[in-house]
């Protein structure tokens, strides 16, 4: 049901842009893209710099996944339990670029016996890698529409991405990869009983949105051609703040761009902020040397403590009687005053 609502939402968004876009060029070609970009940038900046960034990291709560740095003859896991900033940077690089933690994933089964088994589970990791890396390459490839001259790496990426030269123009592997990965992630959500149970509409919606973007992109390149020169003119216009909406831009383009705009605007208010959040996660981005270097908590307020003097005042006689050393030899206050507190002791 949640999946169906999400799918319907994306289809409606597509239909609006496809049908209304060509007759409301300024809205869909200029106003919406600028608004979406503003919301995206503003939203991410708010979240990173103000919401998360303003909240301090009061404790050094790194999750250690390897041997600590202790005695010099014990091999230290500098990547999984980093004690230096360089180590943290490496740990984060593996996390962000290779999804290191997800790579550890296992699938547990409890069999008769009982016997608990742990099998490697790489589908999620592989689909996530394919999804995110394809997405990155696609975004970088699209720079050819927004820049003049086009940066050197863009044609290079295009050449590699279209290496197999299937069809004319060459089919991009990343386009297919993104669609495939999104489909796997969707199927996993539907077919795995547990994952389906935890899924919200907010989990299906971005998947369908990305699929919609990929499908419209592939359609536009291979089947429902639009005037590429006009598209570049329009994109460059947007990027240089001299917006123009030339004729010849087809409805499929408006649909493609509108879905991208929705994704941008939706981004800061959704789970998609994990893109920025992963860099700030205190269980991963802290050094694990909290006994070597003191971690500072800016709000470390005083609390009620039970001092030794209070303790000795309460127990002095008993301490003296059993031969424990005391700081003061005599009880200064009547013992009875303390009798009430003994309730706690049982």
């Amino acid at each position: 049901m949640k999946a169906v609502s999400a799918l319907v939402a994306v289809i409606v968004l597509f239909a609006i842009a496809y049908m209304v876009g060509p007759s409301a060029k300024f809205v869909f070609g200029v106003a919406v893209p600028y608004a979406a970009m503003a919301v995206f940038l503003g939203g991410i900046i708010y979240r990173v710099a103000f919401k998360w960034g303003k909240a301090p990291v009061p404790f050094a709560i790194a999750t250690t996944c390897g041997q600590q740095k202790s005695l010099p003859w014990i091999k230290h896991a500098s990547l999984e339990n980093p004690s230096t900033t360089g180590g943290v940077i490496l740990r984060m690089a593996f996390e962000v670029l290779t999804f290191r933690s997800l790579f550890r994933n296992t699938r547990v089964a409890v069999k008769d016996g009982p016997r608990v088994t742990y099998d490697g589970e790489w589908v999620l990791w592989a689909a996530a890698m394919l999804f995110h890396w394809s997405f990155l390459v696609i975004v970088l490839r699209h720079m050819r529409f927004f820049t003049e001259p086009v940066p050197f790496f863009v044609p290079l990426l295009q050449a590699v991405d279209g290496f197999f030269e299937i069809g004319i123009p060459a089919l991009y592997l990343t386009g297919v990869g993104l669609l495939l990965a999104a489909s796997v992630l969707f199927l996993r959500r539907m077919l795995d009983a547990q994952v389906r149970y935890i899924s919200l509409m907010a989990d299906y919606f971005p998947l369908f949105l990305v699929m919609g973007i990929a499908i419209t992109g592939i359609l536009m390149r291979h089947f429902m051609k639009t005037d590429i020169v006009s598209v570049k003119e329009m994109a460059t216009g947007l990027a240089t703040f001299k917006p123009v909406v030339p004729d010849g831009v087809g409805p499929i383009f408006f649909a493609h761009m509108f879905l991208v705009c929705v994704l941008l605007a939706y981004f800061p208010f959704s789970k998609l902020t994990h893109m920025a959040g992963v860099f700030m996660s205190p269980t991963r981005n802290l050094r694990c040397n909290s006994r070597e270097v003191r971690h500072i908590n800016p709000w470390n307020h005083p609390v009620r403590v039970h001092t030794y003097a209070e303790y000795e005042d309460e127990f002095r006689d008993k301490m003296i009687a059993c031969g424990l050393p005391v700081d003061k030899k005599e009880t200064e206050e009547p013992k009875k005053a303390k009798a009430g507190e003994k309730k706690v002791d049982d």
């Binding site: 909240a55 999620l124 959040g277």
Partner: peptide
């Protein structure tokens, strides 16, 4: 606590419900 703990503030927002933690 959202203002005192970045962990809390962040962990409230960024979970994608991938389910990798489920059977851990």
């Amino acid at each position: 606590r959202l203002q005192k703990f970045r962990s809390f503030s962040l962990f409230m927002d960024i979970c994608v419900r991938c389910g990798a933690c489920a059977d851990k």
